[in-house]
Design a protein around this nucleic acid. Structure first.
Lengths: 224, 224
DNA sequence: GGTTAAAATTAGTCTAACCTAAATTAGCTT
DNA sequence: AAGCTAATTTAGGTTAGACTAATTTTAACC
């Protein structure tokens, strides 16, 4: 049961977790696309992961996959490592938040339980990573904060950024330049009816930023 | 030419470097033994490494291998990462010197050039790792300190420990308990003629330790 | 200089991932 | 309800790196 999973498999499980965390199933083509491999390869792996003892996913032909409890725990374990590393690189080694995802993507697979706990302690047992994503604790419990997508915030309302997308360095550099990091106070000034583009006021700097709907859907807010 | 070498190949090159650093060639069986794989697998790999463009080793049937310049540089690159990691884990994350080798063995393959330089800077550009092994600099230049094996020190002479073996945690815990770390001042009190066992005085603590010849051959001293 | 033991090599398999090309299925549109 | 298209699966092949078993080479000894 607790035989070490290959880095490869861990990546699959992590990706399935990310895709399904907002509900539903992960499709073969979604996985193929985001993992950068062919759909045929994904099918193979999903079949394999559904036939292990215990199975890590529930799979039915043409229906996509969901994680089993074993799969969810394996995904959380690697996600914890990923996010701890991101936090550590920013806090202790002077990385910027757009540099850490790629680095963590590799380091997460090279991290022993001891290193994990040392880094956790060195950071003071953090609960979120630099992008605002929650870090599962040592028992893999993960906090489900309730936030709302910026794109769903009502016009005129105030809020605090809680989470931003974490993968795309370009997006992160842009957000960073605007001051749109977790903790930043904002007010939604307007939303264009036609294309849903938003005008956002950043309270700290008093500056105004324009955010499109697709990016707005990936930024989370807690209303204040 | 500068296509990334696989972790596997890096391990081979590193091992060949370690075996041949005191001169001579690395034999198939030495490599098989220390890498923990079969001799047949090693032969395969050596043939492959001697046929790359550029070749990483010079290989002739039944004659063992030596690194080419390309192979030496690749080995030093990974050795630099290995030793930087060891130093970092001890200095910044509270590891003991017997814990770091295994950890570095894995992390070295997950280390980007950026991480390497950040860790190097965070440590103040160290020149030796916790076991006294020299760390190649960013240009892969490595300092050739001249030391002598403890087992070759003349009886009665004083010296400073410069290097200890780095792989075996048990040996390291023992040496640590004795106070036999790089920098420690010692005097060789006696060497038994029959079995070459040595009595060593540790000046700092005033304690006396007995060291066998095989361990003594792996501890380096600079005479004082 | 021949015998033999140890070391090294060859030959042939195996597994984990990936791939492409071909076949099948699901689900939408008429 | 038939047909079409996109998604998915199957079939078959590749590569890296390991293995075992069988063979060959080296070197050492009498």
């Amino acid at each position: 049961m607790t035989q070490e999973l290959s880095p490869n498999i861990q990546d699959y499980l992590k990706r399935i977790y990310e895709i399904t965390s907002s509900g539903g199933k992960a499709s073969t083509s979604q996985l193929a696309e985001t993992l950068g491999i062919s759909a045929a390869s994904v099918t193979n792996m999903l079949q394999k992961l559904s036939k292990t003892q215990p199975p890590y996913v529930t799979y039915q032909k043409h229906q996509g996959v969901k994680l089993t409890e074993a799969g969810r725990l394996a995904a959380l374990k690697i996600l914890r490592r990923h996010r701890l590393i991101e936090h550590y690189l920013v806090q202790k080694l002077g990385y910027t938040w757009d540099e850490v995802h790629q680095e963590a993507e590799i380091l997460e697979h090279a991290m022993s339980p001891l290193l994990e706990s040392r880094i956790d302690a060195a950071l003071g047992y953090p609960t979120v990573d630099p992008h605002g994503d929650p870090i599962p604790d040592a028992d893999l419990a993960i906090s489900g904060v309730d936030h709302i997508a910026l794109s769903r915030l009502a016009v005129g309302k105030h809020g605090t950024i809680t989470r931003v997308p974490h993968e795309d360095p370009q997006v992160l550099r842009y957000l960073g330049k605007c001051g749109l990091h977790p903790g930043a106070q904002i007010q939604l000034l307007a939303r264009t009816p036609y294309d849903q583009t938003m005008r956002v006021l950043i309270l700290e700097s008093g500056e105004e930023v324009v955010i499109g709907p697709s990016l707005g859907g990936q930024i989370d807010i807690s209303e204040t």
